[in-house]
């Protein structure tokens, strides 16, 4: 059984062919890293998994996508998304909600907390997991525009965690974070593995090496190399993968 299984997935936006024959299998409780140059289709893969691709009315998805045992392309997307958290490439905390509410809303919508005490506990747990608690515990009722870019990003991670997802999609979660906090976040991600399957997009080979169980490399909408992390890092077979891992693309 896999958390995510894609078979011959093709995505078209208008008449552009964005993803080409993508097939991949993501085992439960692993950290699965997607790498590839800008514009290669990494974000699009994540958006197929939680059907956020539907928001784009010009997008068309073909093939089979199984997510947590559901036929993801047939299932009600709003229902499917209950099990899937996502952190976006650019942080998008709700601007009209306080830091506390940004996290609490995800728990409330998904029935994670029954009363105020539960809710406080979930919010704290999520903020701690996201390595943000210490920085915001005295200003939970401030608004997100008062946070730094990296803090906003971690707030979004906390929001995703507060829904207690089974699957977590991270789109370059450390892009705006300093190396120290990035390392902390990596540790947090690895520690989530017991309960959550993590799919992460990153541009940093070193980061991938530290957290990944599996790696897939995407180029121009195709998977050019995939497998267990060790194998990919130690013996990349394609020239593209070698270049990418040396940080040359």
């Amino acid at each position: 059984m896999y958390a995510v299984e894609m078979e011959n997935v093709n995505v078209y936006i208008g008449n552009r062919h964005i993803l080409k024959n993508i097939s991949l299998k993501i085992p439960y409780n692993s950290v699965y890293v997607i790498m590839g140059p800008s514009g290669s289709g990494k974000t699009t893969i994540l958006r197929v998994i939680n059907r956020l691709i539907d928001v784009n009315r010009d997008a068309r998805v073909e093939g089979t996508v199984k997510v947590l045992g559901f036929d993801a392309l047939k299932k009600d997307p709003y229902e499917l998304r209950r099990y899937i958290g996502m952190v976006f490439q650019t942080p998008n905390p709700f601007p009209h909600m306080t830091i506390y509410d940004n996290v609490a809303i995800a728990a409330k919508i998904n029935g994670v907390a029954k009363n105020r005490k539960d809710l406080d506990a979930v919010v704290r747990w999520a903020l701690e997991k996201a390595m943000l608690w210490d920085e915001v515990k005295d200003r939970l009722y401030d608004y997100p525009h008062q946070l730094s870019g990296g803090q906003k990003q971690r707030l979004c991670l906390a929001r995703a965690l507060a829904m207690k997802p089974k699957l977590l999609l991270l789109d370059e979660p450390t892009a705006n974070i300093d190396p120290v906090n990035a390392r902390k976040l990596e540790e947090a991600i690895v520690s989530l593995k017991d309960e959550i399957t993590v799919i992460m997009v990153t541009h940093y080979p070193h980061q991938a090496a530290r957290v990944a169980d599996y790696v897939t490399i995407v180029y121009d909408g195709r998977i050019v190399e995939q497998g267990p992390a060790n194998q990919i890092f130690l013996r990349p077979t394609t020239e593209l993968a070698q270049k990418l891992l040396r940080g040359e693309i």
Partner: peptide, 29 residues
Amino acid sequence: IPETYREAAYSIAMSRWKTVTRVFLPIIR
């Protein structure tokens, strides 16, 4: 309203209706 807030709302499994009432309308209150 930037589309990214719709995506944020959908990503935590908000319905379309809730997205309108709890995200969009408060943002443009």
